[in-house]
Amino acid sequence: MDMTSIQGPLTGGAMIGMAAAGLLLLTGKTAGVSGALYGVVTGERGEFPWQFAFVLGLVLGGVMLGQFMPQALPASAGSSLPLLGLGGLLVGFGARLGGGCTSGHGVCGMGRLSRRSVVATCSFMAVAMATVFLVRISGGSLS
């Protein structure tokens, strides 16, 4: 691993941290993507305006990436369609049942030193790593 390979992660991570910190300082809200999306699709938590704007910003940012930095986005989502369908269901259901995802638990919760978020983050990372390992040794291909 050379220095150039960690420049992107460090810079991008700092931008993610600043976005989450900025949202906290100005609005007091938690930059949890799954929570915001859930609020948008259910629309019943009284938080709709900021959640919709945050999700819209993420989509808009994605469109800008596609325009100005297309190499940041994959040409295809990688996995086979059945696997993407199953993965999407598990990610959506699991994030809500577990109360957060990589952003809410992994960045905001960890940053608050929340024991619940630290344990949740360690749990989903360990399970994700085990899943990748099991798929690989079972001869499955992810790409």
């Binding site: 993407l84 993965g87 699991g94 990589t102 949740a120 989903f124 399970v127 992810l142």
Partner: peptide, 21 residues
Amino acid sequence: RMFAGAALFGVGWGLCGICPG
């Protein structure tokens, strides 16, 4: 619930490499 949700999320994330953001 938190453990079960994190586990399901982890399987989905590990299958596809995509999280909500």
